[in-house]
Design a protein around this nucleic acid. Structure first.
Lengths: 249, 249
DNA sequence: CGATAATTTGAGACGTTTCAAAGCGGGTGG
DNA sequence: CCACCCGCTTTGAAACGTCTCAAATTATCG
């Protein structure tokens, strides 16, 4: 169980301020609200426990989040990874509890906006609703891609898919170039993400390394050498996937 | 591959008109729109193929839908099951293609509302937006519960969870009483839903039968005898799950 | 530089899949 | 009305992939 983690890498090529925050489309109110609600967290912080009282909206300004569920015996499944620029509504159907546990994978800065204030922002700025809608669509889409592989894919295809998905998303927000990025996750985390034991994650990663498809350096620095092969292993059509999980801006 | 199926059971205790359609909260425009867009489909119809052009909103008036993704070699994963009263936006992040394949599991009647018209409805009727939000929250919530079990659960817990989830949802819309309902799915379908082969679904179902936890009669008529045990196998807290996946009305 | 966490590798156990064949049931056409 | 066919369920046996356990190695941080 992560408590007040010590890792603090994970955002190296990060623009000082977030894109949509400074973008001309964002309204003045929006920028202000995010700025005043801005908070910093260190890696491994648990922001919200499953089923905890929650009605706020989270905007990720920098850093990575993991959304997870756990079984009674402590097994964790990472449901989704949230990257900078994305919006998160952890409120479940009953309208007041969180359907998910939220934790930081790296040092992160977030704007946590209470429901009332967020509704006001939505009303004043029509672009926000659009951003929200595409964020949700993208999230659903990548969740189902992962479910498909969780249900029917091999270990290799699950890992390959995760690496490709993250690469595409990071590239879209200019936090990856040349198919190279830092994963602020341990192999255990990655295993919890793709439904494998950390041991098997290791083996699979090593095999991909040996075959020259990717290389991992240092603590989880990923470099994809042969996207075609990786996409083939992941059973992914790159262009289609991109259009499904990347919001148009 | 299902094409124009022949099965047409699946909605036996169905109220002639859907709850939220006739409810006093639904606006006049809403009711009219749904009525004029209403269409009937027989079981096993594929409404929308993955990645197909799509910007409409689907309202399920009666019957069951399955949302699925498939691998290149034809393996299908059912991502979610949609029941009467629920709303579906199959539009992915690019704004015009569908992120999912939609098919009917039983005979079903749907209102397929084009985007422009739906936006107008949203604008006129504030309750629709709320309904949409809770529908999405509920869907996310149950998808993640299923992902947790797909990643970390045994065959038994996956099946047990699916049976409980469906029982709760059906009970909420008064299509199940006394924890008894008809599942308009084959064992293959159920396997595609929970990530198991049809053979293993059969074995697992039979074991639950032998142990007196459930009984299955006829073609997939489920009766849950011992909810406590089933919930325990599924690793579920019934009240918490209910509040997370059932929309308050 | 020692303590602690994360990765790597091996070997065996376990659960699920696959293959195969038999049983059941419902629908169709003779 | 019966015979036949096809799809679904059931059961068995073997193959396969992943997990677990265990131990060695390597990184990380105070």
């Amino acid at each position: 169980m992560h408590v007040e983690g010590t890792e603090n890498k994970g955002e190296r090529v990060l623009s000082p301020e977030l894109e949509f925050l400074t973008s001309p489309t964002a309204s003045c109110e929006m920028r202000q609200a995010l700025q005043t609600r801005k908070r910093e967290y260190c890696a491994g912080t648990i922001l919200k426990v499953e089923a905890e009282e929650n009605t706020a909206t989270y905007c990720v300004l920098s850093g990575w989040l993991a959304l997870s569920k756990s079984t009674i015996d402590g097994e964790r499944q990472i449901i989704d990874v949230i990257l900078p620029g994305e919006i998160l509504h952890p409120t479940s159907a009953d309208g007041h509890s969180s359907w998910i546990q939220i934790e930081t994978l790296s040092r992160a800065s977030l704007a946590v906006v209470p429901r009332a204030e967020w509704s006001k922002l939505e009303a004043t700025d029509p672009t926000i609703r659009k951003l929200e809608a595409t964020t949700i669509a993208a999230s659903m889409s990548r969740m189902s891609e992962r479910m498909l592989r969780l249900g029917k894919g091999t270990a290799e295809s699950r890992i390959a898919y995760a690496l490709i998905e993250l690469c595409l998303r990071l590239t879209a927000i200019r936090q990856s170039k040349n198919r190279e990025y830092h994963l602020p996750m341990t192999q255990k985390d990655l295993g919890d993400f793709v439904g494998l034991s950390s041991v098997h994650v290791c083996r699979t990663l090593r095999r991909l390394n040996r075959n020259g498809v990717i290389s991992t350096m240092d603590h989880m620095d990923i470099r994809i050498h042969d996207v075609e092969t990786l996409a083939h292993i992941a059973e992914v059509d790159l262009d289609r996937l991109r259009s499904e999980i990347i919001s148009v801006r």
